Simulated scan of single mutants.
Amino acid sequence: MVVCDHVEGVVSAPDGPFFGPLAHGLACGAHIPVHVSRAWNTLDDPARDHREDRDSLAEGWGVETAEDWSRQVDYLLAGQNVGPEVDAVLDVRRTLLRQQGHYDLVTWQNAVARWARWQRRRAAEVDELVELAGVVTRYESRFRTDGLLPHDGIVTSVFGYDLGRAVNMARWGHGGRFCDYGSAERIVLRAGELCRQHYSSWADYSAGYALGRVIRFDEESYGHLYASVLGPHRLLTADRTSPWWHVPFA
């Protein structure tokens, strides 16, 4: 069983936004600051200087210039970091549900295989996409056990993972002096708008964010990388000081 990373509580900056579009966008990026006990509602971090942000971006993202940073922001806002393949597989399931009202794993995998062949994917790619449906199914089962999904819930999109990270990329870019405050704010607002296009609620969004993270990094180990998203999810959905309690998602 996963033991969640220890998280003290939701930290808020008293002079940061608590309502409105900017608060919504910042709340879409809340998993990361909550995980490290930093304020969710600010683009400024008094505990870090610009060199620390730059070193972190260089080490974790290969970002060393403003141009590198801008490209990474565009990549994240387009959902290209986690990749479109997972959402394509989820789209096949949505089609089955719309057409038939139900599905099972075998039916879903067969439909994925037909779609992938129609897309003229190579045989190895077809196999990978079919297996991806199985990976999603196993993670969703664990999500239901751990409260990331309701008992009959499914994930609708994983683009939320890249969008949540885009919010933090705006924060780090501003902190690293790769952009001014206005540019960072526009990225946060855009990420919030895109989240509303893909999700219907904070819980829906968080499940998508979590699935994107674990598919990208966890490899079904259910270890630290899983715990590091499960802990913030539980806090953000349960703590009455969380923005998810007072910032409407829609």
Rank of each mutant, 00 (worst) to 15 (best):
residue 145 T to G: 11
residue 194 L to F: 10
residue 186 R to G: 05
residue 187 I to L: 04
residue 108 W to S: 02
residue 198 H to V: 06
residue 129 L to C: 07
residue 155 V to S: 02
residue 115 W to Y: 13
residue 133 A to T: 09
residue 171 R to I: 11
residue 108 W to E: 06
residue 128 E to T: 14
residue 112 V to S: 05
residue 139 Y to H: 06
residue 174 H to Y: 14
residue 154 I to P: 03
residue 168 N to G: 06
residue 138 R to E: 11
residue 152 D to G: 08
residue 164 G to R: 02
residue 187 I to Y: 00
residue 153 G to V: 04
residue 133 A to D: 07
residue 193 E to H: 08
residue 200 S to K: 05
residue 147 G to F: 10
residue 173 G to D: 01
residue 169 M to H: 09
residue 196 R to F: 04
residue 155 V to P: 00
residue 143 F to W: 05
residue 170 A to I: 10
residue 155 V to H: 01
residue 200 S to W: 04
residue 190 R to L: 12
residue 120 R to Q: 14
residue 132 L to P: 01
residue 157 S to K: 04
residue 132 L to V: 08
residue 166 A to Q: 02
residue 149 L to E: 03
residue 118 W to R: 15
residue 126 V to G: 08
residue 149 L to G: 02
residue 187 I to R: 00
residue 146 D to F: 08
residue 197 Q to T: 14
residue 141 S to H: 14
residue 195 C to H: 03
residue 192 G to R: 00
residue 117 R to V: 15
residue 126 V to D: 09
residue 189 L to D: 05
residue 179 C to N: 00
residue 107 T to K: 15
residue 170 A to K: 00
residue 164 G to A: 11
residue 165 R to Y: 05
residue 145 T to K: 11
residue 159 F to A: 09
residue 129 L to A: 07
residue 124 A to F: 13
residue 117 R to F: 11
residue 113 A to W: 13
residue 110 N to V: 06
residue 169 M to C: 07
residue 116 A to F: 10
residue 125 E to C: 08
residue 184 A to V: 06
residue 135 V to G: 01
residue 200 S to R: 13
residue 123 A to K: 07
residue 174 H to A: 02
residue 113 A to L: 09
residue 138 R to G: 06
residue 184 A to I: 03
residue 106 V to A: 15
residue 142 R to M: 08
residue 167 V to R: 04
residue 197 Q to G: 12
residue 141 S to I: 07
residue 137 T to D: 14
residue 130 V to L: 13
residue 132 L to M: 15
residue 102 H to Q: 15
residue 172 W to G: 03
residue 175 G to H: 04
residue 158 V to G: 01
residue 194 L to K: 04
residue 180 D to M: 07
residue 190 R to G: 05
residue 180 D to H: 09
residue 128 E to V: 11
residue 101 G to K: 06
residue 140 E to I: 07
residue 201 S to D: 12
residue 120 R to T: 14
residue 179 C to H: 00
residue 181 Y to N: 04
residue 104 D to Q: 13
residue 184 A to D: 01
residue 132 L to F: 04
residue 148 L to H: 01
residue 121 R to F: 08
residue 143 F to I: 01
residue 108 W to P: 00
residue 152 D to I: 11
residue 105 L to Y: 10
residue 186 R to W: 03
residue 113 A to F: 12
residue 159 F to C: 09
residue 106 V to Q: 15
residue 112 V to K: 01
residue 203 A to H: 10
residue 191 A to I: 08
residue 181 Y to W: 11
